[in-house]
Simulated scan of single mutants.
Amino acid sequence: MEDTDRDLLPEGLEDRLPHGAAVAARVTRSAVDVMESHGYDRVQPPSIEFEKSLASRMEGVRPRRMFRFVDPVSLRTLALRSDMTPQVGRIAATSLAVAARPLRLCYAGQVVTIKGDGLDPAREHLQLGAELIGSDSVAAAAEIVAMAIEALKAAGAQGVSVDFTLPDLVDTLAEKALPLAPGAIEAVRRELDAKDAGGLVEAGGDAYLPLLYAIGPFETAIERLAAIDAGGALASRIKGLREIAGRVSGLARVTLDPSERHGFEYQSWFGFTIYAEGVPGALGRGGTYRILTKDAGQDEAAIGFSLYPDPLIDALAAAEPRRDTLFLPLGHDPEVAARLRAIGWRTVAALSDADDAKALGCTHRLDQGEAAAL
Results as ranks from 00 to 15, higher is better:
P121K: 02
S37Q: 11
E36Y: 09
R57P: 08
V336A: 09
L126H: 11
L326D: 15
G278C: 06
E320V: 07
D5K: 07
I313A: 12
Q44E: 07
G331V: 14
R322Q: 09
A187E: 06
V162P: 12
E14Y: 01
A21F: 09
M147N: 12
V254F: 11
R64I: 05
P217Y: 02
G198P: 06
F50D: 11
T293H: 00
E265I: 01
A207V: 02
T113R: 05
G344N: 00
P217W: 01
C362V: 13
D193G: 05
Q267Y: 07
V32F: 09
P309L: 14
P179Q: 04
A55Q: 10
K115S: 02
L211W: 15
V188Y: 08
L328R: 14
A79C: 07
V32P: 11
A21S: 14
R261P: 01
F67N: 01
D333A: 12
R190C: 01
Y213W: 04
A203P: 06
P72D: 03
D117L: 04
T325I: 15
L351T: 12
A139V: 07
Y308I: 09
I215T: 08
E277N: 06
S95H: 12
G246A: 04
I222M: 02
R62S: 06
A92K: 11
A235M: 01
L200I: 02
P167N: 05
G12L: 05
L360G: 10
D5T: 06
P179Y: 00
D163S: 07
A349I: 14
A235C: 01
R16E: 15
G204W: 13
A31P: 13
L366P: 06
S56T: 15
H125S: 04
A296I: 14
I114L: 08
G344V: 10
L256E: 00
A245M: 11
V70A: 02
G116Y: 05
L119P: 02
Y40P: 14
H125V: 03
V98A: 04
L209V: 11
C106P: 01
A276F: 05
G250R: 03
T273W: 01
Q368E: 14
A25G: 09
M147E: 12
A151C: 07
E202M: 08
L307E: 00
F305L: 00
D7Q: 06
I215K: 10
W269T: 03
L234A: 03
T273N: 06
S53K: 11
W345V: 06
Y40Q: 14
G263S: 04
A55I: 10
